[in-house]
Simulated scan of single mutants.
Amino acid sequence: MITVVVADDQPIARHGLATMLGAAGDIEVVGLAADGREAVDLAARADPDVIVMDIRMPVLSGLAATAEILDGTTGPRPRVLILTTFDLDEHVYEALAAGASGFLLKDCSAEELVHAVRVVAAGEALLAPTVTRRLLADFVRARPPRALAAASARVAALTRRETEVLVLIARGLTNREIAERLVVAEETVKTHVSRLLGKLGVRDRAQAVVVAYDSGLAGHGR
């Protein structure tokens, strides 16, 4: 079972999300939070696999809550799936930098929500590549030159094959799709992914994509 905490300050949205997730046979909602502070507390108590996090909440924003949950925690950490209105939530870039693993538009269907939680829980790929490409492109344009230089140095440590895999991850491909593209076994791709995550010093594919964009390896529209 995938355990989930839902954090949204609007009661109808919060309970609606929980109902949609609870209808899936492999997902269990273990807590509901009405603000970011409650989300942080629930993350510590319930130890969920995924937190579905709205950005705009009282007491403590979803952005601040994400940073607090993921910063400095030892052991396994939950993956944070950000709820965003896309054009309106400019702080989504900061959430990505804080360690969020994916993004979900708030007008999504029940099927899209369930799929997103499964994808993020598995750490398999970023959700909605067409959305994240635009978000990441804007995110990188606002990054300081030092961050870009540091990312380039980290990418330089990868082998040619690992670099190819990173580019495909940044395009939103799953391990299976990458294996088909490169004509190799899926287990081989998993090995490359594990090694490149270690070399880049990141915890998951979402953060690897940030490095790819920071370095210019996966530029806007590529």
Rank of each mutant, 00 (worst) to 15 (best):
V167S: 10
E164C: 12
P58A: 03
D107V: 01
R146C: 03
L81Y: 12
A151N: 02
P145H: 05
V117A: 06
R143D: 02
L96D: 07
I55R: 05
I169M: 08
E111W: 04
D87R: 07
R77I: 11
R133H: 13
G72K: 12
L166Y: 11
I82R: 02
E164K: 15
V140D: 08
A142H: 14
L70E: 03
A150W: 01
I69C: 02
H115L: 15
L60V: 07
V155D: 06
D138V: 15
I55D: 00
T66Y: 08
V119P: 09
V165K: 01
A128F: 12
H91A: 14
G62N: 02
E90T: 10
G62T: 02
A151G: 02
A64D: 09
A65P: 00
R141W: 05
V120Y: 03
T74M: 06
H115E: 15
A125T: 10
L168A: 14
T130I: 09
A156H: 11
E111L: 06
D54E: 09
T130N: 05
A128L: 09
V114K: 02
V120E: 03
P145M: 04
H91T: 06
L105I: 14
F103M: 13
I69G: 03
N175T: 13
A137H: 08
V80L: 10
I82Q: 01
T74V: 09
R154A: 04
I82M: 12
T73G: 09
S152N: 07
T163P: 14
R56P: 01
R171E: 14
R160T: 15
A98R: 05
S61T: 01
A125M: 07
R141D: 08
V92N: 07
C108W: 07
R171T: 08
L135S: 11
L173V: 08
V119H: 10
R143Q: 11
L70W: 05
R154I: 00
L135E: 06
V167R: 13
K106S: 02
G172Q: 03
R146M: 05
T74C: 00
A150H: 06
L158G: 10
A95K: 03
A170G: 03
L173N: 14
A67H: 02
